[in-house]
């Protein structure tokens, strides 16, 4: 996508709105702002407006309507497809990303609200072609079958281990219980999450 002028640093719809919001224009420009209540309310949308997302250490500028979820912005706009869309209702974990150090369901958060946060997906764990120790552990412990739940599980396991490098089995179970695997690989996922280092020494082939 060719960058548009409007996307240039120093100009955002938000700062534009801040300037005009104080005047009487806002309600007219800004969609369904009602007159009886909420004059001077700085509303964004419903049309697309520019946002900036920090994903895996890189800043991305894009224009989205307020209704676009973080998951859809990542997948369909930024081509970051590690987070998967399965239930789209906060009930499966396939869309898990790490946001400011905590796991969240990206399907249940608006992209516009993920601005200013540090977002990490499975893609960001790999350095070049070198897998993260948790990703290696998933390979070495056979922590997947079809693999559709795997990016979600891996990010959840990474978030856990960064907070608590030596979790007990019980702690790991609790930390991973926001993710569902339809192929039923839970015991091996748990082994992988509990043995990220041991995987590094294991010879494969």
């Amino acid at each position: 996508m060719a960058p548009k002028k409007k996307d240039e640093p120093g100009f955002s719809r938000r700062s534009f709105l801040k300037t005009v919001g104080a005047g009487g224009v806002a309600a007219g420009v800004l969609g369904p702002a009602s007159t009886a209540e909420g004059q001077n309310v700085k509303a964004i949308g419903p049309a697309a407006s520019p946002i900036q997302l920090n994903v895996n250490g890189k800043f991305h500028r894009l224009e989205v309507e307020p209704r676009v979820t973080l998951l859809d912005a990542l997948r369909t706009r930024l081509n970051i497809t590690g987070p998967k869309r399965v239930c789209d209702r906060g009930s499966c974990g396939a869309c898990t990303v790490i946001l400011d150090g905590r796991t969240v369901y990206s399907c249940s958060m608006l992209a516009i609200e993920a601005q200013g946060k540090v977002i990490r997906t499975a893609e960001g764990l790999t350095e070049g072609t070198v897998l993260h120790s948790v990703q290696r552990a998933f390979c070495d412990h056979d922590g997947l079958m079809c693999g559709f739940c795997t990016p979600g599980f891996v990010t959840a396991a990474v978030a856990l281990l960064e907070k608590n490098p030596k979790p007990t089995r019980q702690e790991a179970r609790k930390a991973l219980d926001g993710n569902i695997c339809r192929c039923g690989t839970y015991p091996r996922v748990l082994e992988a999450a509990l043995n990220p280092k041991s995987a590094a020494g294991v010879k494969r082939g």
């Binding site: 309310v41 964004i44 949308g45 419903p46 209704r67």
Partner: peptide, 9 residues
């Protein structure tokens, strides 16, 4: 979902 405007209060 239906489109909507967003206010960051």
């Amino acid at each position: 979902m239906k489109s909507f405007a967003y206010v960051n209060a």
